[in-house]
Write a protein that binds this DNA or RNA. Structure first.
Length: 120
RNA sequence: CGUGCAAGCCGACCUGUCGCUGUCCUACUGGGAGAGAGGAAAGUCCGGGCAACGCAGAGCGCCAUACUUCCUAACGGGAAGGGGUCAUUUUGGAAACGGAAUGACCACAGAUAGUGCCACAGAAAAUAAACCGCCCGUGUCCCUCUUGAAGGUUCGGGUAAGGGUGAAAUGGUGGGGUAAGAGCCCACCGUCCUAAUGGUGACAUUGGGAGCAGGGUAAACCUUAUGGGUUGAAAGAUCAAAUAGGCUCCGGGUUAAGGGUUGCUCGCCCGAUCCCAAAGGGAAACCGGAGUGGGUAGAUCGAUGGAUCCAUCCCGUGAGGGAUGGGCUAGAUAAAUGACAGGUAGUGCCGCCAUAGGACUCCGUCCGUCAGCGGCAAGACAGAACCCGGCUUAUAGGCUUGCACUUUUU
RNA sequence: GGUCCGUUCGUCUAGGGGUUAGGACGUAUCCCUUUCACGGAUAAAACACGGGUUCGAUUCCCGUACGGACUA
């Protein structure tokens, strides 16, 4: 199973990020706000992870949460694989809680989110 | 051995699986090797490097600093020293006050350049000033045979000793002196001026002189001296796609585009620049192609080898400087250095076992400890963002050294 | 990353060396009313924290904590 998470699967272009925030749809699934945008052109799913400075003041905590989210996505991204010609998506995962969540919980929530995304 | 204080140092380690960011090798989109957060990376409080822009010279303004000497690339940082304040001990003295030792602290230039402010209380708060008091004189009252003493009181004056107020009241203590008092005079202390000596200097010591100038506040304005051009790496430099548009060249090209009327269509109306005398041609507009400059997305550099680290020696009281040898190991950019599992060591608590010892109601019970085993818990503060030198703040636990104290044993 | 500002009753704010720290809304009690509302009276309630300067600090200075704005 492919568990790599190279740069091409991360959303890093300033322009595409702006487009994502301007045009996307969104839903909440605590502790995440999920925004996504189906696109026609593109090679693979791209994901953006954001943890607000307003919610978590210390850089250490923000880094920790981002690492846990990244790890969870890396282990579950196969659920999003396009098999029947579904659309490629750009996804933004925005952490809105002020608490530090354990990895196991984040893992469960993220699996739910990915399942929901495949049905959309 | 324990506790406390001070200084310095460390900031648990190992393995496996799956990953992330650079580097190198091999290879062709795979594989391998090796590297990958801190003492504060933090706060952004100072200083410097670096970069762009600006810049004749001088003044004003603004900001910062403020005992001295030194260190340093520089600093508001540091070192050494000076002075002061406070506390303790001791000592001299009648006292005021002074000397010595130890410790702590000090943003420590100027209040005699000027301006402002000093609530309440108090007579008065800064050119001095008389509320009570003290003293003198004068008038008057009382008493008295009279003069007139003592006392009360009005007015005028002297007096800063005493009282009282206050954070602060115009040198202090003692003596002389006086109507009462007062540096009015004297001794000592303090202050100011001045000279000599010592010290690079802050300053110190000693001598001489002056009865004594004078409140606090500059973290109030200010004065003096010194320093500061402005903006920050998202600075700045290089390369540069697509699309649109600019310029140049080549080719085509004189066709009408457009506007009004109308719900819409047809129709109708308006409407065509310049040059050559004209037919016509040329230029411009327009269309197509090629080239080119700027420059957006993006990429690269800036950007990680440096006022560098370690060891030894030399110079210096010290901060630090020099020489020699050796080492180098994050470089990301919507931003890497992780997730999960297991183990080891140390710490704390609990239990078990064993035991030096102590207490008692001495077959026994309790306290307590070196070592061992098992279980549980915690593992701090905190994440590079161009780079350095400092400062400040946060920090579980551990180690080393020094000092002080307590207990036990000898 | 860089620059600048703020913190005062429960809330919004005034005050910039000496105040009983003022006002509005809210809260509590009393009066008015048959009752409620309105109105009236009274009361409680605050200078973010730690140092320093000063006789005296909410105010001035330094540090810390927290909050906010601008810049791209």
């Amino acid at each position: 199973m492919d568990r790599k998470f190279p740069k091409s699967e991360r959303l890093h272009s300033r322009k595409l990020i702006k487009e994502l925030f301007d045009k996307s749809s969104s839903f909440f699934l605590y502790p995440f706000k999920v925004i996504f945008l189906p696109v026609i052109s593109g090679e693979t799913n791209q994901v953006l992870i954001s943890v607000s400075k307003k919610k978590l003041k210390r850089a250490v905590d923000r880094n920790l949460i981002k690492r846990r989210i990244r790890e969870a996505y890396r282990h579950h991204k196969h659920m999003l694989l396009v098999e029947d010609g579904g659309s490629i998506k750009r996804i933004g995962l925005i952490y809105v809680s002020s608490d530090l969540m354990e990895y196991s919980e984040i893992q469960k929530k993220l699996a739910k989110i990915l399942r929901k995304l495949t049905t959309l």
